[in-house]
Amino acid sequence: MSDDAPSKKAKGTVFVRKEICKGCSYCIDFCPPHCLAFSDDYNAKGYHYPVLSPAEDCTGCDLCGLYCPDFAIFGVKYEDIEKLRQDAATPVRVSA
């Protein structure tokens, strides 16, 4: 979750795996409410990664997750977190 704790107003939030982000800016440029910005900090590879700013504008629409070429970010609506947790516990391939 972003450094700013989301206020009650926010409908969703993002999860960022900052260590695999390559700083391409896709998520930042195509977030519909423009609520992502580059961090001041950078990761071990030297890339600035996205942080919520302002966090309360995030809708959890996951468009950032769909654009990210590196699978480093995804958005969730607070109301969907439980479903996602259940989905994560169900393997997508029986044989794998």
């Binding site: 695999i20 990210c68 070429p69 699978f71 995804f74 947790r85 391939r93």
Partner: peptide, 30 residues
């Protein structure tokens, strides 16, 4: 216990992938 919803469709142990920053191939895989 949640992860990026696309991770189960990928070979996790191979991520991060080799594509350059800003390469579009990863987005299409997503």
């Amino acid at each position: 216990e949640i992860d990026n919803p696309v991770m189960p469709y990928l070979r996790k142990d191979r991520i991060p992938h080799i594509w350059c920053p800003g390469c579009g191939i990863g987005t299409t895989v997503n």
